[in-house]
């Protein structure tokens, strides 16, 4: 001995009541920033964005003849016409060849809407353990025995999920908007579409809210992060399959709202000024996209109460 050869020194400053939300978010995000995650993010999130970016670049920089006419659009773009009844890519081609401001903004919505799966998979992989690991390692005792409220803790976990979800749902359309603004003939394009970044951010928040509900509910219930991640992705695909089966079985497209991609796309479309088809103009997208995650987060809240007391 002594082990304390440096001695103990008093802290001479003053403690200040702080929210420390940033520190809580950072401790949730920092350990999850791994190189392979970025690779996954790039593959999942930027694939549609990159295709759009390339098409935008070619169309705006090279000219309308780049594709040799509207019928020779690269096949990949056909996948992006989600709400088109017959999946006809000609609508997109028309927008690209004769871009209107509204058309370009609508394209940004399509990008974010097409990234819904990536916006699910990335947080599912990265944030599966955001509560489960804290439970396993007893980290809740570090938080709740200090001036950290349940609300602050929950917000920090939602923020962590939002960070990873936004990489998939906000970054690609935002980058395409920036690219378009940089390459567009009209120098006032950015001013004309000033609301686009806000629409992107808001729609990103809607996606993040939904994903947070699912990921955090599973993470606060299941023990192993791997199981949480798989269950999250499965729940998304399950809803898609169930939705498709009901739509085909009942021949009623309104059931598409059960599919998170359609539900969230339906909620966010008005932000970009995109008109919804009749069959999606129901309360169902709101129920699936906002009410369900609210209920799930209420469940997380009650789970955290139990954890707090058990600290």
């Amino acid at each position: 001995m002594p082990v304390f050869d440096q001695g103990y020194r008093r802290f001479e400053g003053t403690l200040r009541p702080r929210h420390a939300l940033g520190a809580l978010v950072w401790t949730a995000v920092r350990p999850r920033l791994r190189w392979w995650l970025w690779l996954l993010a790039a593959i999942l999130s930027f694939y549609p964005g990159l295709v759009y970016a390339a098409i935008t670049f070619i169309t705006l920089a090279v000219g309308p003849d780049a594709f040799g006419g509207r019928n020779r659009l690269p096949e990949a773009s056909g996948a992006f016409v989600a709400f088109s009844d017959n999946g006809d890519p000609s609508q997109l081609v028309a927008e690209l060849l004769a871009p209107t401001t509204a058309g370009i903004v609508a394209r940004l919505w399509r990008i974010s809407e097409q990234c819904a799966l990536a916006g699910f998979v990335l947080p599912a992989v990265a944030c599966a353990g955001v509560i489960a690991t804290d439970r396993a390692t007893g980290a809740h005792q570090i938080y709740f025995a200090r001036p950290v409220t349940r609300m602050r803790y929950l917000l920090s976990r939602i923020a962590a999920v939002t960070v990873f979800c936004s990489v998939a749902t906000v970054l690609p359309p935002l980058l395409v908007w920036l690219e378009t603004a940089a390459l567009h003939d009209d120098p006032w394009f950015a001013a004309q579409t000033w609301s686009a970044p806000f629409a992107i951010a808001l729609s990103g928040a809607v996606y993040a809210y939904f994903v947070s509900g699912v990921v955090l509910a599973l993470s606060s219930t299941l023990r192993r992060p791997l199981v949480v991640g798989l269950a999250t992705i499965f729940s998304y695909l399950f809803l898609q399959v169930v939705s498709a089966m009901i739509v085909h079985g009942l021949e009623d497209k309104r059931w598409r709202a059960l599919d998170p991609q359609y539900a969230l796309g339906g909620i966010t479309a008005p932000l970009y000024g995109v008109a919804l088809p009749d069959w999606l103009q129901t309360p169902w997208p709101w129920l699936v996209g906002l009410v369900v995650p609210t209920l799930l987060l209420a469940y997380v809240w009650s789970r955290l109460r139990a954890v707090e007391v058990a600290t």
Binding site: P31, T137, A139, R146, T311
Partner: peptide
């Protein structure tokens, strides 16, 4: 109160990855 006191829990408790 939590700001003013220090607390060392009995069971293992750490933030993973730090």
């Amino acid at each position: 109160v939590r700001r003013a006191v220090g607390y060392m829990p009995e069971v293992d408790a750490y933030v993973s990855g730090l």
